[in-house]
Design a binder for these strands. Structure first.
Lengths: 182, 182
DNA sequence: GGATTTATGGACTGTTCGGTCCAAGTTAGT
DNA sequence: ACTAACTTGGACCGAACAGTCCATAAATCC
């Protein structure tokens, strides 16, 4: 039988595509190929647990692929972050679940986790930028701007139905982060 | 009796706070103080028409307060845009409905309007930046970055539950827009 | 003042929601 | 081969959804 590990990515795409409330159990069953009995067997606490499992997966991936590598510091680490982020968001073809959850009723359900995700990202990027020559206080402001920029690039790409918009904004953020004086 | 003009702003806040799907008719009745009969009298096509009326109001406001004034061009127009945007989003205390709609199932319902809103904003800001000394092609990239940045600042403020994050990011965007060479 | 029209609110409707239940199928153990 | 445990899917449940209906109230017209 399929386990949580196989099912959670499918849940993730369903929540990204439709949002928490838009992703009905009927849609989730269709996307996962499971009946409700099976879903509830894997996630006994129901839909909220499914979304929590998805957030777990997102956090684990970002910690491993983005936040921890940033600790090596410097421009190479920052550039690697941009590469990872570009790939993860499929160059603008994929919604950031955390950002989407922040803009809906889901925010209240997962408030601490949404906050931690962004705090962690900004902290990690601050450290990398500081190691790369940015003054600490400016680094933090820069990090916030970059993380906000990534989120905004996703919104823009989605609203314009234009992945290239994401790519252009990301490229600008990348160049800016690479330059301590700008 | 209260008309659409009085009711639509209340609808707008309800959709901003809860999202399209999260804003049930029960919530909408509560927020507007009307019964269903009255709501359906004002908006015979139902909930989707209420949301469309809200988008109308958003577009009219942005056209009048942001896009049209940008046509006067130059740094003063751009600065004025930042002032208007800061006030409109209550310094980070208010969600951008268009952005929120772009990240949920509502995107499909209102695709053309969401696209037009952002296209209009980027075009208008491009023109203002070009009049302010930015090279046209760079102005367009800059405009995209600014608009994306505003959206991202809203997501960040919301997720972090910290309006000051919005203010900081907006300030950086403002300074960047004011400087042709950065 | 009466007749007509419009606005009103909430009971009601059919549908969909998240979640529960359980018969049947599958797997594991002996 | 049999038994027990586990997994499965979908019928079913109660609640909530968007929307309809209609008796009543209010407004408008003459």
């Amino acid at each position: 039988m399929a386990g949580r590990a196989e099912i959670t990515p499918l849940l993730a795409e369903t929540f990204r595509e439709h949002g928490y409330e838009g992703a009905s159990l009927a849609l989730i069953c269709k996307a996962t190929g499971l009946g409700k009995g099976s879903l509830y067997n894997l996630f006994p606490k129901g839909k909220e647990e499914m979304a929590a499992a998805v957030l777990d997966e997102v956090e684990v991936w970002f910690e491993r692929e983005v936040f921890a590598p940033l600790a090596t510091g410097g421009p190479a680490a920052t550039a690697k972050m941009f590469d990872a982020v570009d790939a993860y968001f499929r160059s603008g073809g994929r919604v950031c679940l955390v950002g989407a959850f922040a803009l809906a009723d889901t925010r209240e359900r997962f408030a601490a986790r949404l906050r931690t995700y962004f705090t962690r990202w900004i902290d990690a990027l601050s450290i990398a930028l500081t190691a790369g020559g940015h003054k600490p206080r400016k680094a933090r402001g820069r990090a916030e701007e970059v993380v906000a920029g990534v989120q905004g690039a996703i919104v823009l790409a989605r609203a314009l139905d234009d992945k290239a918009a994401f790519a252009r904004v990301l490229e600008r953020l990348r160049r800016r982060a690479a330059s301590p004086q700008a």
